[in-house]
C-alpha cells in the first residue's frame, strides 16, 4: 500500500564515482558509484536511489596493537603486510579498501612521504578495488605527505582524507593536482560542515567531488548525535542545498572495536553473551543505523560485518 504522505523533494544528493578503470587512466577492475538519491534512505515510493551504500574495509600500514583477538584472528598473519591485508579484504567481499596510513604518525613510526607512497603503490597493485586513502590523523604530518600520495595515485580517482578546517587548503590542492575526491571532516557540527564545504569549493574544487565526514560516534558513544546531523544534512540536500548534498562517509570500525562492549571477555561480563558474536553485532548494528540515517560509505573491520551489512543493504534495496 502506498503511504498517504509522499514528499516531493526539489533536490538530490550528488553522484560520485570512486576508482578508475584502465580505459580511464587508472588500474581498477571496478568503480564504486555513490549518492544521487532524491529521497531519504530506502523510501523508493518517494524518489530514486540509484546507488546502494558501499562497504569499505580498513587496511593499516602498521599492525594494530589494540584490536581484540576476535577481530585480529580473522586476518591471520596479513596484518603486518598492507598489500596482503588489502588482498584479504577483497576476498572478504568489500566494495572499497580504506587504506589508513597510521605509520606516518610522529608518535608511531613517523614514516616519510617516500615510505608512505611505496606502501600506497604496493596496496594499489595488490588489490583492484577502488581506494580510500586517509592519513594518520595528525594534521601537520598529513599535510606534509598528502601531496606525494595524491601524485603517486594520479589517475586512480581515489578518495583522499581527511581534510579539516586546519588543513583543507593543502588537501584540496593535493586532490586537485591528482584528480581525486576529498573527505571533508567536521566535529559533529552542521554549520561547520557546510562552511568547510564552501571553503573547499572556494578553492575551485568541484562541490560534487567532496564526501562529508560529519564525525562518527559508536553505538552507545554518541551515535544518536551523528544520526541527527546526518539526517539534517540529507534533508537540507533534498531541499536543494548544494553545499549539503555530498555523499557521507562513516568510520564505524574504529569506533566499534575500542568499546568495552566489543572487548570485555565473557568471564568479565558473562551476561553480555559470547564476545565473538558481540563485536560483529555491535559493528553491524551501528552500520545499519548509519545507513538508515543516510550514510553512503560505511567503513568496517570485521569480515562478518561486511557480510551482514551487505546482506541488509541488499534486502532494503529491493523496490
Amino acid at each position: 500500500m502506498e503511504p498517504a504522505i509522499i514528499e516531493k523533494w526539489p533536490g538530490r544528493t550528488y553522484e560520485l564515482t570512486i576508482g578508475a578503470t584502465k580505459e580511464e587512466g587508472g588500474s581498477r577492475s571496478k568503480k564504486v558509484k555513490l549518492g544521487g538519491m532524491s529521497t531519504l534512505p530506502f523510501l523508493f515510493f518517494e524518489g530514486t536511489i540509484p546507488n546502494p551504500p558501499a562497504v569499505a574495509m580498513e587496511v593499516w600500514d602498521v599492525e594494530p596493537t589494540d584490536w581484540p583477538d576476535v577481530l585480529k584472528n580473522e586476518y591471520g598473519d596479513v596484518l603486518t603486510d598492507p598489500a596482503k591485508w588489502a588482498k584479504k579484504c577483497e576476498e572478504f567481499g568489500c566494495d572499497l579498501i580504506c587504506l589508513r596510513l597510521k605509520s606516518a604518525d610522529p608518535d608511531l613510526k613517523n614514516s616519510s612521504a617516500d615510505e608512505i607512497t611505496k606502501t600506497v603503490k604496493n596496496v594499489l597493485s595488490a588489490t583492484s578495488l577502488p581506494l580510500i586513502i586517509v592519513g594518520c590523523g595528525n594534521n601537520e604530518k598529513d599535510s606534509s605527505i598528502i601531496m606525494s600520495i595524491s601524485e603517486s595515485t594520479k589517475g586512480e580517482n581515489c578518495l583522499l582524507g581527511v581534510a579539516t578546517k586546519e588543513n583543507y587548503k593543502t588537501f584540496t590542492a593535493a586532490a586537485l593536482s591528482g584528480g581525486h575526491s576529498i573527505i571533508a571532516e567536521t566535529p559533529l557540527d552542521i554549520n561547520l560542515e557546510k562552511q568547510l564545504n564552501i571553503l573547499i569549493t572556494d578553492m575551485g574544487f568541484s562541490s560534487d567531488r567532496i564526501v562529508i565526514h560529519p564525525s562518527t560516534g559508536g553505538l552507545g558513544y554518541g551515535f544518536e548525535y551523528c544520526y541527527t546531523i546526518i539526517e539534517r544534512t540529507r534533508l537540507a540536500a533534498l531541499s536543494g542545498d548544494k553545499m549539503m548534498s555530498q555523499p557521507i562517509i562513516n568510520f564505524i570500525g574504529q569506533e566499534t572495536w575500542k568499546t568495552k562492549e566489543c572487548k570485555a571477555d565473557e568471564t568479565e561480563k558473562p551476561e553480555w553473551g559470547a564476545l565473538k558474536e558481540r563485536g560483529v553485532l555491535w559493528e553491524t548494528t551501528t552500520s545499519v543505523g548509519y545507513i538508515q540515517a543516510g550514510s553512503d560509505i560505511i567503513v568496517v573491520n570485521h569480515p562478518s560485518s561486511v557480510k551482514e551489512v551487505r546482506n541488509y543493504i541488499q534486502k532494503l534495496m529491493i523496490k
Binding site: 554549520n191 557546510k194 564552501i198 571553503l199 537540507a236 542545498d241 553545499m243 549539503m244
Partner: peptide, 15 residues
Amino acid sequence: KNIYCDSYLDAYRKK
C-alpha cells in the same frame, strides 16, 4: 529555510 554557516551569503549564491 537554510542551514547557517559563516559564509551563508556565499553558500546561498552557490545554489
